[in-house]
Design a binder for these strands. Sequence first.
DNA 1: AAATGTTGTGTTAACGTTAATCCATGAACG
DNA 2: CGTTCATGGATTAACGTTAACACAACATTT
Lengths: 341, 341
Amino acid sequence: MNVKLKDIADRTGFSINTVSRALREDSRISEATRVTIRQIANDMGYIPNVVAGSMRSNRSRTIGIISADSANPFFAEVIQGIEEKARKANYSILLINTEEQAANERDAIRLLLGRQVDGLVIAPVFNDEENLSLYRELTIPYIFVGRYVDGMQDHSILHGDVEGQAMAVDHLLRHGHRKILYIAGPKNISNTIDRLQGLKQAYHAHNLEIDESYILSSSGHMEDGYARVNQALNRGLSFTAVVCFNDLLAIGALKSLHENSLSVPDDVEVFGFDNLAMSQFMQPRLTTVEVPKNRLGQKAVEELVRHIEDPAYPYATVNMKPRLILRESTLANHMDNNATH
Amino acid sequence: MNVKLKDIADRTGFSINTVSRALREDSRISEATRVTIRQIANDMGYIPNVVAGSMRSNRSRTIGIISADSANPFFAEVIQGIEEKARKANYSILLINTEEQAANERDAIRLLLGRQVDGLVIAPVFNDEENLSLYRELTIPYIFVGRYVDGMQDHSILHGDVEGQAMAVDHLLRHGHRKILYIAGPKNISNTIDRLQGLKQAYHAHNLEIDESYILSSSGHMEDGYARVNQALNRGLSFTAVVCFNDLLAIGALKSLHENSLSVPDDVEVFGFDNLAMSQFMQPRLTTVEVPKNRLGQKAVEELVRHIEDPAYPYATVNMKPRLILRESTLANHMDNNATH
DNA sequence: AAATGTTGTGTTAACGTTAATCCATGAACG
DNA sequence: CGTTCATGGATTAACGTTAACACAACATTT
């Protein structure tokens, strides 16, 4: 059997409680006893039973992470940031993927509550009624990372989806593009909605009407980017630029354009979103919108931990500034657009 | 306060224990009571306190995942498989990254033991003495995923690193290549060692000496693939093929070759390893060795759960067959090598 | 010198669940 | 018609820790 407090107590002659306190440097314990106890605990190879501790103290030092898809490079980086920050703050993380299904999200919340997590970091499905009320009744702190749901924006860490997408499209419009193919993301997440809004905002700012037939829907994966562009070309749609909801789509788009002997950026310019690590290794290097993924995860944990440790700490939307990363998949690669600075 | 067994007991008139058993369909409880209790528990919104249950039952239904780097697309996919399988088997996962540091691996093990996990899935650093003895003394089941440590191969789920790399190099030698640049992986993991062995094995099979100056070391990231090939070219090293420890390196290599106006595959052929999702979207599509990443994770959990549920279940190495995926970054793309079938 | 505070420790009681026993009740049996 | 056995449930005691309180010993104040 593993060493427990009682064993250390027996060995040192102190009470279980004193041992517990000495190991936590919790209370007024003399330096001498503290040292003795720690020494012996160490010699005996004591590993605290966190489960027992959690039960009594009503704090598990565990955070539940509800991700959409941890294999998606975007979330993989966010989760990396979360894990790193949590580990340093002495929290452990329980990870669950929802595959963008509202029902899975519900199950995940229930499961994590049952596991007594101290807080949640969530990439939520957009405005699912049932989940909305679930969130409203939640008694532990929670942060939405990179997304939001209506009425709870103040629980979110965001990265300027509207603004970022507007900047990207504005950049292209400004350089004369009038036939821009837009490949949108999954229907049920806030990012898709916001980036679409950014797209439209840019058109309006230029007093241009948007042609809805140039807006295609997708699930946001590489295969989709490839397929959508193929389809557009097959339908004879003419366009001089492709703007994608994210880099994955853009990478697929690049592939299709190449196979159809269209040169990027000379025949068609391509814009991504997210700035994934792999994007600068594409051929050509992908122009995109920077999103601080790792930082996003870290920030989410920072905020969450503050809420956990101080229930009075007020919720407030954190909105990070997006930034264009102009590379080879677009032409005008000098930063002639300083509007956002 | 949350609903607990006692509340349901009070409400139904049954004892706490009967309620507990009814909800677990554990024992001899009449169908009628079971239904009544479940109904009421449901109405009251009861969520079992898993922490309390774990403490008493001595089973946490939690698995610890010790990954090297969850943002690396390879591990990201393995972890996805782990998460999916674990969720379906009613286990939760605690995720920790070690960044390939043996010391972090030790900390992770300790931490997870303290959290009373029922088992571990680990991507271990290779043969760190201190960790080796830690593993030997471990009293809970553990599986090494995609890697091994000496003397504990039977705890591993592997994917034929030696064989896979040998197949790849053999393919190139067979097609006349004699100057093959090899970019190896991180020093302290088994995959690097095995793949190097595979490389040498292929040379020996062709009665060829290997030129050590054609073997470069790296950390296994895209930037490294790019930098190593750049350096090799700058040093005036002549080669007709680049074989990389993994796809990430190969992607970096492609970039460097392109920038140096070398055509792939006409001037230089490029071989990766792992078959990442992104690899088939490279320009040109990357030839590689298939590794069933998601499946690897799933299998690890399957095995682990069997060990958890039956301590007598014997450990045995699982070795998955590798398979060449010939694409555009190499020339002879028809499968003329049937040696492994 | 009594009152008050401070420091260090022990004692007791939880936390919410499950395991181990025990105890009725009624059916089945010779 | 007593004995045995199965069935359904209650009672009690843990699991290992931390919180709350108590208290002795000594120092400090008035």
